[in-house]
Design a protein around this nucleic acid. Sequence first.
RNA 1: CGGAGCGUAGCUCAGCCUGGUAGAGCACUUGGUUUGGGACCAAGACGUCGCAGGUUCAAAUCCUGUCGCUCCGACCA
Length: 572
Amino acid sequence: MLWTHTFIPTLKETPAEAEIASHKLLLRAGLIRKLTGGLYTFLPLGVRALRKVEKIVREEMNRAGALEVLMPALQPPEIWEKSGRLVTASDVLFKLRDRAKKEWLLGPTHEEVITTLVAGEINSYRQLPRNFYQIQTKFRDEIRPRFGLMRAKEFIMKDAYSFDATDELAQVSYQKMYDAYTRIFARCGLKALPVEADTGVMGGKFSHEFMVPAETGENEVVYCDGCRYAANLEKAVSAGPAVATSTAPATAELEKFPTPGVVTIDALAAAPYLVPAERQIKTLVYLADSKLVLILLRGDDQLNEAKLVATLGTPHVRPASAEEIFGALSAHPGSLGAVGVTTLPVYADTVLTNATEMTTGANEDGFHFRNVSAARDLKVTHWADFRSVKVGEACAKCGQPLKIQRAIEVGHVFKLGTKYSEKLSAYFLDENGKQQPAVMGCYGIGVTRTMQAVIEQSHDKDGVIWPISVAPYTVCLTPLSVTPGGPVMALAEKLHAELEAAGVDVILDDRDERPGVKFKDSELVGFPIRVGIGEKSLAKGEVELKTRGGQLVPVPVGEIVARVMGLIAAAQ
RNA sequence: CGGAGCGUAGCUCAGCCUGGUAGAGCACUUGGUUUGGGACCAAGACGUCGCAGGUUCAAAUCCUGUCGCUCCGACCA
C-alpha cells in the first residue's frame, strides 16, 4: 500500500475530547473519528487493526470447535419477555418502533436469539454439544459512554453460546472457551488475567472475566500473590477485616445516649465519643423493587452494591432518599439503626455475626445506642456478605495479604446453566428418552475494546507500539527522497513489491515530506518495523532497520527482506 | 438522573467580565527557499460565534430557554 493512496489523517494536537492515552492515540494516529458521543467511524487504519483482532478471535474460536453464525441485530421484544430480561435489562436496551408502531429492540447480546434457534433445531442429545459464535455490532444504552471505544453505545463483540446435554459436559465447553480466551489475548499481545466475576444481569452460576491491568480501567481486581486467587472487587472475598469484630459476651444493657449533630461514622469515632469505626454499625436504607430494606455493615466497611444486587435478586436497587427514610424510620440519615425495627427486612453483613459492644443510630435524630448486641438487639432477617474487600486483608485461601489493581475487562465467560433454555424451551431428549433443558454457557469478547486495550497497554510518548499480530501494517518503508526514478525511491518500490509478494502487510510512505514528518508519523501510528532508505546509507549499500521502540540498525540492502521476515517469524 | 465545565475556522484555543469592523497557532491552497526527527518566507481561502427567543440603536459578549460535548457522581448515613 502507498501512503498517498490510503487515508491516514494524523493529528499533531490532541483533540480535547480524549482523556486517556489510548483514546488520544486512536484519534491522533488516524484510526477512528467520532460521529457523536459513544459512536465512532473506523478509518482505514482502524479497520485494519480491528480485522486483525477479529481474525485472531475467529481462528481460536474455530480451533475450539465453535461454529460461526450471524444473527439479527434487530430483535423482537417477545423473546426478551420470555427470558424475563425485558424488565431486568431494560436500562441498557435501545427500543424503537416500526411504521405499524410495533416495538423492536437493538440487541445488546443474543442469548434469546440463539436459544430460540436451538429450541427449534436441536431435539436430541445426539446433536449436542454445540457452540455457536458471531462477531457483530451490539447496541447498549450506556449510562455514560466514555474513553472512546472503551464504553460506547455501539461496539463490536464476539459472542459465543454453548449447549450441552449435562452440567459436566457444559463444564468442558466452558473450559474450552476459557482456554481459547487465554490464547486469544496472548496472541493480541495483551497481558490479560482471568478473575472470578459477578454474573450481574446475565444471571447464571459463575463466571470469569479476562482483565487487562491498566490504571485507566473501570474495574478493580483483587488478587493474591500467595496463591492464584483473583476476583473482581464486586465478587471478591477475604478472610475478613484486619480488625476483628467484638464478640465478648453481651453483659451491658442497651443504652441510648445523646449525640447532637453527629451524622457520620467519623464524627462518632472522634472526641468526645471515641467509638472506633469497627465498633459501629452502619445502617443503609435501600429501595429494592420499590420496597425499603435495611442494610447493616460494620462502620469501617463499604457496601458492595453488586453483592447486594446478587443477594436481593433484583437489579432495581437504589439508595432511599432522606424523605423516604424519614417516612419509615422517623429519623434522618446519620441517626439510623435497626434496633427495634421489625417492620422492614434487615440484611446484615456476616462480619456482624455475634457482634457485641456495638454502637448504632437510635432512629431518633441526635441519639445513638451503645452496647448493642446483634443477637440480642437486632431482628436480622437475612445474613450475607455485603462488604467490599480492602487492600491488605488476608486471602481467604492462603492467608497472604490481598492486593487491588485497576483493570479493563476485555472478555467474560459465563456458566449459564438452564435459565435461558428453560424459559425459551430449548429442550432435547436424552438417551433415556427424557426431556431435558440444554445446559448453556455464553462467552463474550469486546473486540473493539480489546483493540483499544492493546494501545492502552502498549504505547509511549511518541505513539502506539503495535504488536505485529494486530498492527495495521507490519512494515513501514520510509524513503527519505521520493524523486521518481531516483535510486532511493527505486529501492523502496522494489522492497515494497518483494515484501508484498511475501505476504507482508507493508506500507510505503511515498509522501513528499521532510524526514522528520515521516519519522514522527510512523512512530505515532506505531508500525512495528520501519525500514529507512536514504542516500547516505544507500551509498554504503545499506538501509536502516528500526523496530518500534528499538535501536536503529544498518542492514545491507541484499539482506533486508530476510531480516524483516525473520523478525516477523520470531513474533509468531 | 444529579453536579461542574465547555460549545467561536478542519484541530487546539484567545476574545465575553466592561456590548460597537470576528482573531492567533496548527492544518489547507498557490509561489518561492529548504530537505536525516513534526522547516521558513510571501500571498490566499476557510465563520449563520451550537440553536431559538429576549434586552438594546447595536449581541460572540448581557438575559432566558434548548440541544450537544467532556469530566465527576449516581454506594458509605
